[in-house]
């Protein structure tokens, strides 16, 4: 099959928008202002302020992923039990907010969670003292979970939907009650979906900065915020690039470690 020319546009795309920028970023990262080679920008991740931001990002991303799994799994199970029409409509509702600008949605959360916002207004109505959620990590977490949840629900739902009903019947036939069917059949077979969900939630959560900007009021420093500031405010592109590369390598190594078993077993990658 000599149809290789059909892939030309994608090759151009990959070279132009993935490889070249990566090379540029790497070139920037390994040089200083005088264009001399240095490890400094890469190693800057170890400086206390950056390290702290990195750990905070890790904690937030980890927490966000965990909460997303806990919320998404039951949601996916409920969704699977729906009849076809209702299923389609519910998925549509899940996806619908994604068609609205992401920053607008986060700004809405800022309004909801602010001191005189909707949440505190409603709490006041039922006699609960107002919560000071604005600019806290809790607000950041709420915003992130809200934003990333669909990316966890959909792959888990797909994986669960792919499980042959016969397998569940076979398990019951062999004496498994509902709990055991879930533990021994549904959950293990939904792992690939959950792993893609983890990739799709953890990585953006780890690297995001806009949510922290808006819901953290500039007080919460994720590693993404630090990198943004190096590029935009301090105009130190070398340092920004160095931190980016370090972060990327950490994410890749981390994911490779997490997903290794799965890939070995199934012989396929999940992304």
């Amino acid at each position: 099959m000599k149809r290789k020319y059909l892939s030309t546009p994608y090759i151009i795309w990959v070279i132009g928008f993935t490889i070249l920028p990566l090379v540029t970023i790497a070139a920037s990262a390994f040089t200083d202002n005088d264009d001399a080679f240095t490890w400094g920008n890469i190693l800057a991740i170890l400086e206390p302020i950056n390290r702290q931001a990195l750990l905070f990002s890790l904690a937030i991303a980890f927490g966000c992923t965990l909460i997303c799994i806990l919320l998404a799994y039951p949601a996916a199970l409920v969704l699977k039990s729906f009849r076809l029409k209702r299923k389609g409509f519910t998925i549509f509702l899940l996806v619908l907010p994604m068609w609205m600008n992401f920053i607008l949605r986060i700004l809405a959360w800022q309004m909801i969670l602010s001191k005189n916002g909707i949440l505190n207004f409603l709490l006041g109505k039922v006699g609960i003292a107002p919560l000071a959620l604005s600019n806290t990590w809790i607000a950041l977490m709420i915003g992130m979970v809200y934003d990333f949840l669909p990316y966890m629900i959909l792959p888990i739902f797909n994986a669960i939907s792919d499980i042959d009903e016969d397998l569940i019947e076979a398990a019951r036939d062999l004496g498994a009650d509902s709990g055991t069917v879930f533990r021994k059949v549904i959950f293990p077979l939904s792992m690939p979906g959950m792993l893609s969900g983890i990739v799709m939630v953890f990585v953006p959560a780890m690297t995001s900065f806009v949510i922290a900007d808006i819901l953290g009021g500039g007080k919460l420093q994720l590693i993404g915020n630090i990198i943004e500031q190096e590029f935009v405010k301090s105009m130190n592109w070398h340092l920004g690039a160095g931190l980016s590369i370090s972060l990327m390598l950490l994410v890749i190594v981390g994911l490779a470690f997490t997903l290794r078993n799965d890939m070995e077993e199934r012989g396929t990658t999940i992304w």
């Binding site: 042959d164 019947e169 076979a170 036939d173 021994k184 077979l189």
Partner: peptide, 27 residues
Amino acid sequence: SEKRNVNTVFQKYSLFPHMNVEENIAF
């Protein structure tokens, strides 16, 4: 179904794909 002393061989075999032969039989 799980409380009946009856077992089924299904048309599409329905072996658990995440388990090997031994684990399937031992289920």
